[in-house]
Write a protein that binds this DNA or RNA. Sequence first.
DNA 1: TATTAAGCGAGACGGTACGTCACGTCTTAGG
DNA 2: CCTAAGACGTGACGTACCGTCTCGCTTAATA
Lengths: 200, 200, 200, 200
Amino acid sequence: MGDEQGERGRRGPGRPRQEHLTRAVLDAVVELVAESGMGALTMDAVAARAGVSKPAMYRRWPTKQDLVIAAAEARIGALTVPDMGDFRAELRAVLTARMKAYRQPGVGRLLAGVIGAAAEAGAEPGAYRAYTSRVMSETRHLLERGVARGDVRPDADVDDAATLVAASLVFRMVGEQRLLDEALVESMVDLIGRAVGTHP
Amino acid sequence: MGDEQGERGRRGPGRPRQEHLTRAVLDAVVELVAESGMGALTMDAVAARAGVSKPAMYRRWPTKQDLVIAAAEARIGALTVPDMGDFRAELRAVLTARMKAYRQPGVGRLLAGVIGAAAEAGAEPGAYRAYTSRVMSETRHLLERGVARGDVRPDADVDDAATLVAASLVFRMVGEQRLLDEALVESMVDLIGRAVGTHP
Amino acid sequence: MGDEQGERGRRGPGRPRQEHLTRAVLDAVVELVAESGMGALTMDAVAARAGVSKPAMYRRWPTKQDLVIAAAEARIGALTVPDMGDFRAELRAVLTARMKAYRQPGVGRLLAGVIGAAAEAGAEPGAYRAYTSRVMSETRHLLERGVARGDVRPDADVDDAATLVAASLVFRMVGEQRLLDEALVESMVDLIGRAVGTHP
Amino acid sequence: MGDEQGERGRRGPGRPRQEHLTRAVLDAVVELVAESGMGALTMDAVAARAGVSKPAMYRRWPTKQDLVIAAAEARIGALTVPDMGDFRAELRAVLTARMKAYRQPGVGRLLAGVIGAAAEAGAEPGAYRAYTSRVMSETRHLLERGVARGDVRPDADVDDAATLVAASLVFRMVGEQRLLDEALVESMVDLIGRAVGTHP
DNA sequence: TATTAAGCGAGACGGTACGTCACGTCTTAGG
DNA sequence: CCTAAGACGTGACGTACCGTCTCGCTTAATA
């Protein structure tokens, strides 16, 4: 699961970890994926590109999956949309932000890799689930705010609508392997707006 | 890409392929994935489980990816929804059919594996794209029929709406790793129906 | 322990092992040791030098120890001294033969490595013991023939005398790290001849 | 080569080394080897067992080899046999003393390890040679005293005879991997006594 | 009926990555 | 200057999987 989430505070005695190595590795992951796809994402290749030793990597992320997820999170990051007084506007904001994050070079393939890796053998859902559920709850929050405000139908299933929001961009990119653009965002704002909005 | 699509006709002289081996292999793939996930899906393991030699497998599917896609297709299969006179009914039919296909044991992880594998290094999009675009065009056909019939808005982007339809179940299962059920289908019929329907 | 001792007969179905690989590996071991000592005897280095893959090596010798012992045996080989009618002459013959075998480049260090490796962790005595006891019994046979003939004292402990014969050259080379020569052999023939001979 | 031979006097300013750490490490080496063989003799394991940090070890013995040799010397130690007026008696004394030293738990494997390590790559003969030649000269001294006294043949090669004396026990233990006992010592006194003695 | 091309199981092969381990160094903080 | 703790680079380890190949055998369609 990686322990890089631990508070940056004391780690007891001994030489502390060098944070620039952590960054170098995450950068190397994205670069390699952007250049040559997930197939080129070898632990050895990452270590070589980052100028870091393999043990130093495995100390931080015990599994390739953990590393990949950490790299994806570092590029996609968290997302909080402020109350803009209008559901459609907020939806446009969040989709636009995600579109831009996903369009960064390598992020698309990285995300596909993360999804594939989550289906692995013993793959403890740990890190992956943590990431996924965080993203979903952001979206649910948006919908609930809309319900409270009155521009989202109260009888729409928030869970399922949130799935629709999250799925749209990810599936287009990863499933259909097509590029994302503003037109898609606009289209989705319209479709999902009609699906859950109070005023058609 | 696999040559198993070739017409079953003449293959010239020599001993013909034994079709029961083909079936045994595809079954073994699904069984293994269902039991132990994609990580356990070794070519050797498949061969052992199916009681088939590796060369016999590679004669049929030149690559592991091809085999995985073939196995997924064999379980999910093609889908043609007859004209039922009502878009929502047809949408419910197609989503229900897919839900049932996806819920078969192993199919979820298999699909995740296919998606992940499509992001590999040189991964010629070949087989994957062929499968994906076939599925998408089925859905587009449904929407176009609705437009012609008059119960789907003509100004809705068919492409983007089709993405929404396909994404809903796949993302819930693969992205969120949650089980599919009838309630989700009903929810999606409602949401997508409102999104593209002419009568709210 | 290595299975390379198996009779060269049938190995059942499947592709047979390529014997030239076996030879190439054993040669590479000796070359590397002769050039750079046991420290340079990496499995990777051997594989590279022999132009053989690591799995192909591990199929033949499951352990580095087994490989080292096999290489040593291939260079030192078995030894049978014919009845020459005189114990001292036979002793001179066997010591001369061993001296020549040990003086081959790399063999000295190889032997030291074998001895060191035999003290390793779980080191099942298997291969090492087999080799050692074969060498010792050759020497014992020589002594027993001398007793039967009448030029070796019947009250000399054959076991301990055999140890002395085997130890002389090996310790000089491995323990003292000095080169072997004919003078040493002559000296040992004299000393051991007096130690166990009937006519001083 | 290790600096532990340095005079125990002043080491300049600063905190002096704690001698009990030195002893703890050497003890830990022998314990570990006795329990689990050379394979378990890791620098980390020694440090852990001795309750000492790695830098503290490397300050004393710059190399693992140096540590191993130091541990062996500490258990085997130097040996000076007083003039007993009879070569055979002195020979019995020295062999008995060595037999007892070698029979201590772990010492056999430790000695094998030392011999193996001496064949390593760049292994500067330093420490090993120093130890070996000291042992050999002890034995030569014994023989020379016998020659002077008149109970050792003056035409016996002292060097080669000394090799025989040293080799007997070491080879039996390390080469043949058999236990040492008084009978072997008695046997060797008889054999070597006949080999170099003036009165058969 | 004989030939022949292809299929088949078995398993060795080269290649490449895996995740781990050990060595010897270095960096922190504290005595 | 010593000490404990522990991260670091280096490099080898032994294993696993992929996709290919070489065996010796079997099976049909063709000649």
